[in-house]
């Protein structure tokens, strides 16, 4: 982990001093357990870049900003899922491959801070007493003022990370460290659990979850693939979705997002992580991902040469809907 951060700083410093990129979007550590996106503009800034198993943000979202698209070449730190979002953006013609240097980080899982806080609480450890965090060989080590506390990775990373099939970036220019093999299986058990519910039970489940939505649109704003200039829910002439924050309109908003991301969502679940109300959005998006895979044998964001799902067809595509 220390080597990784050193390498990152070295590579970033080189790219910046050699003028290969205008700036690098990475992470900085604000507090031992708090990291956030960071725009490094100089060699000095490069030394502030950081990486830890808390670097959850999918930084590809910044590639869709107008000033970044119009600007000069930049560097971007990507994990496996983030790199797939970049591939998808390249496929869709939003990102110019020539204008971005991808600094790949082989991901060993991202720690869910909420789970970590809970676990620390059970051990009577204040999360503010933590001084560092690292992940190696399936073990998460939290350094505190009173020694190191170890956790099994599976218990403490985001659920989604336990399904991850692409921990190593799929696309990169520089890879920091060795490739990482997937440690979990993709069995869509979380989705199947919902599928097993009967219609009424399922509707009640989602009604309850979606009634909590406050429409802060954090899910939309953190999503790298949600880059429409004007979102359907913001349109007022005509109004498609009422401003009233009620279950019907909330449901429409979320289902609309799922459909608009069909064959495009790369499953980073930045949306779910950003949701202050804890709505299990990953279950909706993973259902779509599972169906897309079953119907069209397609996985989003795997190959820059591949065409987006909805812009391509195969002779064997199912067509039961044509009557």
């Amino acid at each position: 982990m220390v080597n990784l951060v050193e390498n990152l700083r070295k590579e970033a410093g080189r790219l910046l001093t050699e003028g290969k990129v205008k700036h690098i979007i990475g992470y900085e550590m604000v507090e031992p357990l708090k990291v956030r996106p960071f725009f490094a503009k100089s060699a000095d800034d490069a030394n502030k870049l950081h990486y830890s198993p808390l670097c959850a943000h999918n930084l590809a979202v910044y590639l869709t900003l107008e000033e970044i698209k119009a600007g000069e070449k930049i560097g971007l730190v990507v994990k496996g899922c983030d790199s797939r979002a970049v591939i998808q953006l390249i496929q869709e013609g939003i990102v110019d491959r020539e204008k971005v240097v991808l600094i790949g980080v082989p991901c060993r899982g991202i720690v869910d801070l909420e789970k970590l806080r809970e676990e620390l609480g059970e051990r009577n450890v204040q999360s503010s007493s933590a001084t560092g965090i690292s992940i190696e060989n399936g073990v998460v080590k939290v350094e505190t003022k009173n020694g190191i506390i170890k956790f099994d990775r599976k218990e403490i990373v985001f659920d989604i990370c336990n399904h991850c099939q692409n921990p190593t970036p799929v696309l990169y220019d520089i890879l920091l460290g060795e490739e990482v093999k997937p440690w979990g299986k993709e069995n869509y058990e979380d989705v199947k659990e919902i599928e097993r519910m009967d219609l009424k039970e399922r509707w009640n489940y989602w009604k309850e979850k979606l009634s909590k939505c406050v429409r802060c649109y954090a899910c939309r704003e953190v999503c790298p693939l949600c880059y429409c200039k004007e979102c359907l829910v913001d349109k007022t002439m005509p109004t498609w979705v009422r401003k009233s924050v009620v279950t019907s309109e909330n449901t429409f908003f979320h289902l609309m997002r799922v459909f608009h991301l069909a064959g495009r969502c790369v499953g980073c679940v930045a949306c779910e992580r950003s949701c202050p109300e804890g709505i299990p959005l990953s279950k909706l998006f993973r259902k779509m991902e599972k169906d897309v895979k079953a119907l069209f044998d397609y996985k989003a964001g795997m190959d820059v040469e591949q065409k987006p799902l909805l812009a391509s067809f195969k002779l064997e595509d199912p067509e039961e809907f044509i009557k």
Partner: peptide, 8 residues
Amino acid sequence: KICVGCGI
């Protein structure tokens, strides 16, 4: 720069 523009 890092703000994503949500309403939280």
